Amino acid sequence: MNCVKILSVRIIFDPTEISRPTAIALGNFDGVHIGHRRVIAPILPTALDDRHLTSTVVSFAPHPQEFFSNQPRQLLAPFEEKVSLLADLGVEQLVLLPFNAALAKLTAAEFIQQILIKSMQVEMISVGCDFRFGKQRQGSINDLQQIWGDRLTVIPEQTMNVGTSNQAVRISSSNIRAALAEGNIDLANALLGRPYNLLGEVVYGKQLGRTIGFPTANIAIPEAKCLPRDGVYAVQVLINNAHPYISGVMNIGMRPTVNGNLRSLEVHLFAWQGDIYGQRLNVELKQFIRPEQKFESLDALQSQIHQDCQSAQRYLDTEQLCTVPQ
């Protein structure tokens, strides 16, 4: 059987397992950001007048750019995260088309006939305005329009006014990656429509943090996960997705003060005691505090971490006050 069920979403690898007919949203949907959610919204069960259609997201594995470049692609939401986000929206099934040489060779007409009509029995489609498909991306919105007519929904380019200049920024996965690379967490979170998170298991590290009064949890995250700029962040953390949130400070980087040689992700939780080895942490990034730097001594590092904790706590306290209903 080439399908599995994760949360409430059926994951389809074999076209013969698809629940048909379908209402589909087509795209890669890395991050399931605000723009993606607007593409998906028209095909959700709550939006469908025709209840015999199955709400379906159609995506590709691997990402087409990864296939053509033969290079691993860093993802805003690796597979399990993506499925969880789609489940939260109410999507019923996710069809993962294997992006291989055979699929890459399909013309636009062949993709429509073999994949959309014959295999998936598509009756409704929703796509972004820049969606392309088929060999050398020759297929366009017009090709879909000719067949599905008013059963095709095309979502226009989505933008958001941000910053003091109120500048319009395109909501896209590439702009979110660029913001993360700069440490611009405010912009990344705004475009996502939620805090960017890092999800992983707590593993054993060198346990140096506890020797200077700041014990840390070392987190192993999927290799495919896109990491933000190296440095220190104010964060809020869920342990095994259980509320309430725990405030903390996180460092991503090479730990140059202690001659680290591997990039690590360490979280110091405020007002927390206990053994969390083997537990899963969901770390939500709230603010970039400072870049990583090398200190002359452990005492200097200890002093800076103390200042970082104060900065993070002030920010998180202020954010909490701002979000309390008046």
Rank of each mutant, 00 (worst) to 15 (best):
E266V: 00
M254R: 09
G213L: 03
I252G: 05
A271W: 13
Q326S: 15
V9D: 04
H63S: 08
I212V: 13
Q114D: 13
N70S: 13
G139Q: 01
S174Y: 06
L106W: 01
L44N: 00
S165H: 07
T46C: 06
G163P: 04
T54V: 14
G193E: 02
W148P: 02
Q293K: 13
S247N: 15
I24D: 05
R151F: 06
K118Q: 14
S174T: 15
I24Q: 02
N175F: 01
Q320W: 15
V154N: 07
E319T: 06
A47E: 12
N70K: 15
I6T: 13
Y277K: 02
T16A: 15
S303D: 14
D14S: 09
L96R: 08
I34M: 07
L321S: 10
Q293G: 00
C3P: 03
Q93F: 09
P291Q: 14
N218D: 10
T16F: 12
V249R: 04
P78W: 01
N28H: 06
A234Y: 04
P215G: 00
A23K: 04
C322V: 12
F29A: 08
Y204I: 14
T257V: 08
A224I: 07
M160F: 03
N175T: 11
T153I: 09
A217M: 00
V9M: 09
A220K: 14
A87Q: 01
K286A: 10
N166W: 00
R229T: 12
A61Q: 11
L198K: 06
T107V: 01
G193F: 09
